[in-house]
Design a protein around this nucleic acid. Structure first.
Lengths: 228, 228
DNA sequence: CAAAAAACTTAGGACGCACTAATTTGAATT
DNA sequence: AATTCAAATTAGTGCGTCCTAAGTTTTTTG
């Protein structure tokens, strides 16, 4: 109902909340207070307070005790932040010698500080890329984003080959490990064996066999040649 | 006395205050409350309050009713911000199509958000430049800065030729006008005539005569071939 | 289905940083 | 030297964002 008519500049906190809620909504459910709190490393009462302010501003809908959903306006802001974040990552990797395990934190700060002009200049320098270094899709200027559906490597049956397209973690240690193991977007991987009880996978990638934990295999998002 | 032992991250406001005080100290005098307030567009009481906090943190020395001076620690922070600001300006102009009249505001926000790593990457990409697009000297990593002494064009006697080295304004309109008039760092200018009573100057630059206001001529910092 | 556990909100407070209004101090003027 | 004026400070507030402690609602479980 309150429509956020006066476009006052949003604070960094607000931008972070909206981005987090957008990400949590990706799971299909409304974002819960505690999930937001955990993602942003804040206490639940702090989140409750911010939810009240954001829904007063018309950026989200709140059903008490049930969770929140972004309004169109809130989603617009969130997607804008996602575009910024991913373009900055791509630019830093493409032009300033960053590696995919180090860009996240830098982008996390810069996304709040760059102007629209600078973002578009970066996009231009990069040739308007559609994916960032982790394979995450970059929304276009209008907020359109093609969220392709990928299959986690962990769910590829033994014997099948799939290609890694996207890596769903921002932890530097994990990213370094994956890079070192040759498990990056664009790489074909053959699943040799699944250990039972959600155990590790034996895979073939880059010409040699290796074993990879289940949790990590969940974060390697792939396409199967046929299922594509 | 309080030595700012725990290196907690400084806020954006604190960084802005220290940079402003550093700039005001350039005039040789302690920075006054009202000068700081004017430069930062804040009320004097706000500045008084911040001065108290900053001197408690050991970043500056305050003599009540007299003004403030940066401590070594405060100066270190301020020079770090100046290096950031000027390197960012140079990078944006050099690599992202910015012009010298549009970089200031962008750099003003980015200087608070970039990491040391990113700044050094930009410096490397630029070949560790010593001056920014306006001719302002860029402090090196250790904070060393060679503040050359220039002569304002307004003080060059009629008949003499001098070379513009530095332009002391960040107002986009003025910078656009100067660019349009061909009055940028590196350009030789011959003073033809001074109008009396602090009036405008007639000058020869880029092959044609033009008239330039006294105030603007004060901001064009030059070296004289002989005095150099 | 009642009791326990988990999730969420409200209450109340702190901190940083801005403001206006009122007061104090120092400098300038007569 | 007394008065006047400008500059600076203190007093008191507000806003945004965070916190802990305490209370409420929903979900889970025995």
């Amino acid at each position: 109902m309150p429509a956020q008519l006066t476009r006052e500049p949003l604070t960094r906190s607000v931008e972070d909340y909206l981005k987090a809620i957008y990400r949590l909504e990706g799971a299909g459910q409304p974002a819960s207070t505690s999930d937001i709190a955990e993602l942003l490393e804040l206490s639940p009462p702090s989140v409750s307070g911010m939810i009240r302010r954001l829904s007063e501003q018309g950026l989200l809908e709140h059903v008490p005790y049930r969770g929140v959903l972004l309004t169109a306006g809130g989603r617009r802001v969130a997607i804008r932040m996602v575009r910024r974040h991913r373009l900055i990552e791509a630019y830093l990797v493409g032009f300033l010698g960053y590696t995919w395990d180090t860009v996240h934190d830098e982008a996390e700060r810069l996304e709040h500080a760059v102007s629209d002009v600078l973002i578009e200049r970066m996009a231009l320098a990069l040739g308007n890329p559609r994916f960032d270094p982790h394979g995450d899709p970059i929304p276009d200027r209008d907020g359109a984003i093609d969220e392709l559906v990928y299959t986690p490597l962990a769910e590829i049956p033994a014997g099948e080959t799939a290609e890694i397209r996207r890596v769903d973690t921002s932890q530097p240690e994990r990213l370094r490990y994956l890079e070192h193991s040759g498990l990056t977007p664009g790489i074909p991987v053959t699943v040799i064996q699944h250990q039972p009880f959600r155990g590790p996978l034996t895979i073939l990638a880059g010409g040699h066999e290796q074993v990879i934990g289940r949790e990590l295999a969940e974060q390697l998002l792939c396409v199967r040649p046929d299922a594509k």
